[in-house]
């Protein structure tokens, strides 16, 4: 079962940031459930074999006040998780993955298509690609980020990371808009 964690604070944003991901997964015929982060249970996390944390709108940072809901990404719990389930964080989802590992966010605005340079193969992406960006905040490129993650792609901001020890992937851009194959590839990791 794939668990999609919806981080949108407004119900209407589900249509824009969650439903497109569900549509991609539905077409693969993989079973999935979607939970809002405020309703997430340990059982949801335990029962899943793969997790996707969605993004949300430019103005929505409510999720960052409730990081306790994402303890399942903490080092302590990951060490004891024998399932080693893959996790993909998209935009705000990537920011949560990084915040939970001690990284910091800084202001950084990108809206629309930008060219990201991939230094190595990342979920099927390689070389220079147009990616769809929609963010006001970015993960700071500092020692905390580089301690936990390999950086795979950048514009002037870090665009794609993978955890050094776990199958945890983060993309700042929105693969549910352009480069949908990233999500399909993640389902095969």
């Amino acid at each position: 079962m794939i668990l999609i964690v919806n981080i949108c604070n407004n119900l209407l944003h589900y249509q824009e940031f969650v439903r497109p991901i569900e549509d991609i997964i539905r077409n693969t015929e993989e079973p999935f459930i979607t939970r809002h982060y405020t309703e997430l249970t340990s059982k949801d996390v335990y029962d899943s074999h793969r997790i996707i944390i969605t993004g949300t709108s430019l103005q929505d940072f409510e999720y960052s006040k409730h990081l306790d809901k994402f303890k399942f990404i903490s080092d302590e719990l990951l060490k004891n998780d024998s399932s080693k389930k893959p996790i993909l964080g998209i935009c705000g989802g990537m920011q949560i993955l990084c915040l939970m590992r001690g990284c910091k966010l800084v202001k950084g605005l990108e809206i629309g298509l930008v060219k990201a340079k991939f230094s190595a193969e990342f979920l099927g992406m390689n070389g220079e690609k147009d990616v769809y960006s929609l963010h006001n905040m970015v993960v700071k490129k500092d020692n905390a980020l580089e301690k936990h993650f390999h950086i795979y792609a950048s514009t002037k901001y870090v665009q794609a990371v993978k955890d050094k020890h776990y199958k945890i992937y983060g993309v700042l851009f929105h693969p549910e808009v352009r480069n949908k194959d990233i999500i399909r590839r993640f389902l095969c990791v």
């Binding site: 249509q15 439903r19 430019l58 103005q59 809206i111 808009v177």
Partner: peptide, 18 residues
Amino acid sequence: QTITNDLDLECFNPLWQC
């Protein structure tokens, strides 16, 4: 999105990618 962000407004696209 750029205009609404500049004006500190939310932007909703409920048909996006459907």
